[in-house]
């Protein structure tokens, strides 16, 4: 029972980061029906930006803000330099995959040059030092802060999408660019904002994961990208509540398979289980919800 509860704690903190990252992927898919493979690199850059701020001795909330803004700017850059150019030139949607992969590799290459290939860790902070033990279950203050931060970010996103003019514009563009145009929405600008939000979420997720596992490397984005895409598919493409649920589910499945089977089989079990879920519900966890909305 103790092991079980311990894994729930670990799984929720990991899953909250998967959720934040996957929301960014699914948001872009929902609006443009494309996948931005550079999201993983924005995650990695966010982790390094946060690390640099922390190494300067500046407070961690500032590290998070810098990663958010930095990731967001990179997201906008990917739209302006890659996706918009392809759309204007009538490029095939799959070309965006290759181009965004190239952008991701470019960022990984730059990170290797600047920071080296060695793994870095965040400097000691009070959040990791504080650990509670409740009935044999260890809970780090850091884990709680990660989950709370993730939930706050998701809450801000949910509020923005549901209750603000920009959010309604994003949802209208996601429904149809032409419908957005006839109500006067500046579609290009709205898409740019969407890329900012997605990049910012990736950057923030980078800081959170870097802190949680104390591991920052140029290659961390590639693992995350695969997980983000998996969660996106699991939750139903373009479905934000689905991505949240999928993120937590993947986090829990992973830590449970490490605890009860073996870490060697973590990804095999995680992806295998998701495959089984998709066999039963090919359109993702929340397809019923989406159908009601449509």
């Amino acid at each position: 029972m103790t092991t079980f509860l311990q894994q729930v704690v670990n799984g929720l903190s990991l899953g909250s980061i998967y959720a934040v990252f996957a929301i960014g992927c699914t948001l872009i898919f929902g609006v443009l029906n494309i996948v931005n493979l550079a999201q993983g690199a924005f995650f990695m850059v966010g982790a390094y930006l946060g690390l640099e701020i922390a190494l300067l001795g500046l407070p961690l909330p500032l590290a998070l803000v810098v990663a958010l803004v930095g990731g967001g700017i990179l997201g906008m850059a990917s739209e302006l330099l890659v996706f918009r150019v392809l759309r204007l030139r009538g490029g095939h949607k799959w070309m965006g995959l290759v181009a965004s992969l190239a952008l991701a590799r470019l960022l990984v290459g730059i990170a290797q040059e600047v920071f080296g290939t060695a793994v870095h860790g965040y400097p000691p902070n009070p959040f990791t030092a504080i650990v509670w033990e409740i009935g044999g279950v260890r809970v780090q203050l850091l884990q709680i802060i990660v989950v709370i931060t993730a939930v706050i970010l998701m809450g801000i996103l949910g509020f923005t999408l549901q209750k603000t003019s920009v959010g309604r514009a994003i949802r209208t563009v996601a429904f149809s660019e032409d419908v957005a145009r006839i109500v006067g929405v500046e579609v290009g600008r709205t898409i740019l904002i969407t890329f900012f939000i997605a990049g910012a979420l990736a950057g923030a997720a980078g800081v959170l994961l870097g802190l949680l596992f104390n591991v920052v490397s140029p290659f961390m984005g590639e693992h995350m990208l695969v997980k983000g895409l998996t969660v996106m598919i699991l939750g139903g493409l373009g479905n934000i509540p689905g991505a949240v649920a999928g993120g937590f589910l993947l986090g829990l499945v992973e830590v449970f398979s490490v605890a009860y089977v073996s870490s060697a089989f973590r990804d095999a079990i995680g992806f295998g289980l998701i495959f089984l879920i998709l066999l039963v519900k090919p359109t993702g966890l929340f397809s019923g919800f989406e159908e009601r909305r449509a």
Binding site: R168, R171, T172, F175, D178, V179, I182, R293, A294
Partner: peptide, 10 residues
């Protein structure tokens, strides 16, 4: 517009 085009998911 023709076909009304209300945003079904909103």
């Amino acid at each position: 517009p023709e076909g009304r085009r209300v945003v079904a998911s909103m």
